[in-house]
């Protein structure tokens, strides 16, 4: 069936016009504001067509009928998203503006989902069937990603500081952590199962605090192990990068080791340390999907259920929120790094 037959000729004309105009505006590489406007216009057209089209297709269909967007939609979505990303990077908005834009985007997304405009899409129908499950999965996913990040920070910062001050420890710790990083994620999650099952069986009290071969504990531990290298390595690199003359001056004026660490070395290292945390957070949001495989919960549950049943929409229900979560974390952490880099750097030399 042709598109105007699905969404009606008027809607189709408006939406197509919006998308064409969007692409035309988006091609103005030298004018990032036009490009940004074009990408928004195009997205609006795309969403309009999607919501009207889906509704129309289902009018006479039975209860079990499902509509989902096909390759054409995803391609166009990709094009407009890339235009938007490019426009934003050319505009180089300050951290405050970026925070505002991010909030605007999230509010817009929430409004779109709440409005019911997309409720006819099969992914939304999958969602409606599992609202409670989706909420737990989301909470669990965030808990896995943020929790392992916090634990990695709690262990990694002190370890990084010690590695910075003692070359022997550094030459020992960094290779071990690098080795952990090279273990493929599926294997890592797999290894955790027997290890933690053994811990649960032998260490008294371990079971009571929730340690078991499958579930949250092994997933959390695997993520933690992956997180340690970026945290430790970036802490060491950040501390190393503090200007030697400033560190020497701090010693020369009579700061104790601790005073020097807190007021000179750590503040100077902060942007690099935060960059490490950014890597970890984005990586963990993605890796936490695999927790679904060993009963750890999170969005991975839907992905693997969907894979088993070859239900694409169920996979998407797990994958899309993960992508959004990863994007949002990356942008938030970037903003944080920018704030930490407050001290002016002179433009060029």
């Amino acid at each position: 069936m042709p598109v105007w037959g699905v969404a009606g000729p008027v809607t189709t004309a408006i939406a197509l016009a919006a998308m064409v105009a969007g692409v035309a505006l988006g091609l103005q590489a030298a004018r990032p504001w036009w490009r940004l406007g074009g990408s928004l216009l195009g997205l609006a057209g795309l969403v309009l067509l999607l919501s009207r089209g889906a509704g129309a297709l289902l009018v006479d269909a039975g209860d079990l009928a499902r509509v989902s967007p096909a390759a054409g939609f995803w391609c166009l979505l990709l094009v407009f998203m890339m235009l938007m990303a490019d426009a934003l990077s050319a505009l180089r908005p300050g951290p405050r503006l970026r925070l505002g834009l991010l909030a605007l985007f999230l509010v817009g997304l929430a409004a779109l989902l709440a409005s019911g405009a997309l409720s006819e899409l099969s992914i939304m129908q999958e969602y409606r069937g599992r609202v409670a499950g989706f909420r737990t999965a989301a909470a669990r996913h965030v808990a896995l990603a943020l929790g392992s990040l916090a634990a990695a920070a709690a262990i990694g910062f002190p370890l990084g500081i010690l590695c910075h001050r003692r070359a022997r420890l550094r030459s020992l710790a960094i290779p071990v952590l690098s080795f952990l990083q090279t273990i493929p994620s599926l294997a890592m999650f797999g290894i955790m199962i027997p290890v933690l099952a053994w811990v649960a069986a032998t260490v008294p009290g371990a079971q009571e605090i929730g340690i078991a071969g499958i579930g949250f504990a092994p997933a959390f531990l695997a993520l933690l192990l992956y997180s340690l290298l970026p945290v430790v390595a970036n802490t060491v690199a950040g501390l190393d990068a503090a200007p030697p003359a400033a560190v020497e001056a701090a010693r020369g004026m009579g700061m104790t080791d601790r005073q020097r660490l807190w007021s000179i070395e750590l503040p100077l290292a902060l942007p690099v340390i935060l960059a490490g945390l950014r890597i970890v957070l984005v990586q963990n949001v993605g890796l936490a999907v695999i927790a679904g495989l060993i009963g750890g919960g999170g969005f991975g549950t839907f992905v693997f259920q969907g894979l088993n049943q070859t239900a694409t929409d169920l996979i998407l229900l797990g994958a899309l929120p993960t992508v959004v979560l990863a994007l949002v974390s990356a942008i938030l952490m970037d903003i944080l790094v920018d704030f930490a880099r407050r001290t002016p750097k002179r433009e060029s030399a």
């Binding site: 200007p243 003359a245 400033a246 020497e248 001056a249 701090a250 010693r251 020369g252 004026m253 009579g254 700061m255 104790t256 000179i264 503040p267 100077l268 001290t343």
Partner: peptide, 19 residues
């Protein structure tokens, strides 16, 4: 650290704290 607080030290290359 107490000794050094009594002695001013201007390091070779100013060594100011950039932040």
């Amino acid at each position: 650290h107490l000794l050094r607080r009594r002695i001013g030290y201007a390091i070779q290359g100013h060594g100011l704290f950039p932040h």
